[in-house]
Design a protein around this nucleic acid. Structure first.
Lengths: 220, 220, 220, 220
DNA sequence: AATGAATGAGGCTTCATTCAT
DNA sequence: CATGAATGAAGCCTCATTCAT
């Protein structure tokens, strides 16, 4: 592991503080002063490391995304089959947000709707990250696990949309103290994505009618 | 139809202006002056109709929700079967956001993460509105259209999560000018929810094993 | 008694309302709206009767002063002797403030320190009113009841100063609900003004020394 | 003497400016901008030292009260006898207001009728200060200088009421330019308090009649 | 005579940012 | 490196006052 310089440490200390502060209030309701206080430095010091409040905000996700990506890739090599991998991905995303609720709040409640952030290099990095979902679904299509006519891109939207919806709800009411954790939804989501909600339709559609005809008496 | 007083008209005019302004910038980056200018009144006039900037914000969704609810209910009476209704609901939600993109932006990018709004009466009204999804799914379970072991509440999260995800993406890049409209996702979402992504799952899962046992000779 | 026109009644109704409102908050913290609400008229109506908020304020004392003056004069004719009259005056001033605490608040806490009010005709009328104290003291000096070397003007300051101090204290803490009423101070004030606080001063100051010299015998 | 930090100096500079500004207009008619201009700093700077306009107002009296108290105590140790001390107190109060007319204006015309100020710690300190009057009168009663049946608390009201009345009058007309200074009233007030206004009554009540009879001529 | 409706003017307060030390 | 100190710019909100009806 790379040894960090003092400067880098101070930088991360400020980012950490910003993460905590921005996640509690909004971004616009948080002040540089709040962050400085939380970091134990002066307001001015923050400007030694970041040119503006916004740059500080945009600096928060990078490390988290890298971290999340590393963990996920670590796990996926252990898993075989697109379907199994997909469950692993869903589990990881829910779990990472759950365990890093400050990052989740900033990511889902601040950055997600920030147009400037979308033009950032970090945002591209995030998109790249989510390619892993698309890749997995494509893999499943090729292997015959998944239907041919589904759009991997769209399925990714369903997965991310649902996960984000669940996590935001959780954050909005007393997370992380809340008892019902996001991770608990992993199988509900996975099953629905894979199987849908329709009742075993074949059984209904293809009623089995077996007609037994009396056999002629053999000795006829 | 009820005739609106001058005062009500002016009120709606301001709400409309606020809707346009807040949806372009954030709430916090929008100013009362911006809204006043857009509405063609003075700053002070806004305070004749709303006690604070926040109250103005919270006043935006009411009419939209009522409107959306009315339209949806109108349509649903024409549709039979939980599955068909579900598609109608998905279609309507995507379509209403698409046709009212300012409201969509405010609803999904501002109010959704506003804790104070969640304590509002209007928010309760919204939750009530979404009960219709849950009711429909329950109906489908009872009628045998949907599986017994799914959670209607969770399915609602998938539907709303996906829809909101799609709409936010659309809003974030030049909507409503964007060529790919949210509504186009209606069948992808409906099919996925209903059928899942797994290939012909029933045919694989329920292998048919027919055992014919020799009948005892009748004349035994 | 003069019959009041509708207009005059409305005017007085507004003044009464203003008295109540201004006495509760300050003048500057009270709004025309508050007064209008209290009076049961619209804001605009107030401007039909008064050209400005300040004119409304300055209109409050007139009637009170006239009223107070009339009552006092009524009583004084029944009293003989400067000293007795003085006690009557003190009693009346304390009592009038006590019974008209809204007027007291406006008079002592708003108008007293308002430079513009001092240039008002009404203020002159008030000064004139207080001449009665000075007159009474002069009368006492002439009659030999009071010392020759006291300044009537100054004694008036002591009387008014003390009364106003007591009334303001009373107003500042929950008057008129407060149990200790201003009027209860009447004799303490009167006695102090008349007698001072020094113990039996004359008996100590004027020691009597009588020297008798023996007379020469006449028949010497 | 304690060396003041830069910050303390700046604080005092602002308080001084506020004292000058608030004493000229009212509190509510004075603006933070006025104070800032007078202090030679920006509006925002004031908020680095005081959390609100009101806190700034309430910060004005503290130093003055401390100062006034110190001076008075300094002098009182040189004076013997309750009566003499009382005169010293009256002299000092008149004199301190006279020499610090801005403070006098704020104290007597703004704070005196401010209910919130009455709940302040500083206000309690002020009440404590005025205990010295009560103590002195009690001392006089015990020593036999003053009557037994007077209320020290009430006498304090007469003294403060008169002083405040006189000072306010002085402030209301062109103080401190005015030629008649508050201090000039010291003996009038002292004498009245001590002796009252009644003509030396003993001399009237006990008329001395000395009759000299002509002596018979010795050589008759 | 009364008022509903509108607003210009202005004040308090906040905060990101700068810079000399 | 770090920061204490200062501020320009800006926003929300209030309210006395006006005027057409």
């Amino acid at each position: 592991m790379k040894i960090k310089t003092k400067k880098e440490n101070r930088r991360e200390q400020i980012i950490k503080a910003a993460e905590e502060v921005f996640s509690k209030k909004d971004f616009l309701n948080s002040t540089i002063s709040d962050v400085a206080k939380q970091a134990g430095v002066s307001d001015a010091t923050i400007y030694e490391y970041f040119t503006s409040k916004e740059e500080l905000l945009f600096s928060i996700p990078r490390e988290n995304i890298e971290n999340s990506k590393n963990i996920l890739e670590d796990h996926l090599v252990y898993i075989k089959g697109a379907s199994n991998k997909l469950r692993g991905i869903i589990y990881h995303l829910l779990s990472y947000y759950q365990e890093n609720s400050d990052f989740a709040a900033i990511s889902l409640m601040i950055l997600k709707t920030n147009r400037k952030f979308m033009e950032t290099e970090i945002y591209n990095y995030l998109r790249e990250y989510y390619q892993i979902i698309i890749k997995t679904i494509e893999e499943g299509i090729e292997s015959g696990e998944f239907k041919k006519d589904i759009s991997p891109h769209f399925v990714r939207s369903v997965i991310l949309g649902t996960i984000e919806f669940i996590v935001v709800r959780w954050l909005m009411k007393g997370a992380p103290a809340d008892k019902t954790k996001p991770v608990e939804s992993v199988d509900a989501l996975f099953d629905l994505i894979v199987d849908g909600i329709k009742l075993e339709n074949n059984l209904r559609d293809f009623k089995c009618r077996i007609i037994l005809e009396p056999q002629d008496a053999p000795g006829k």
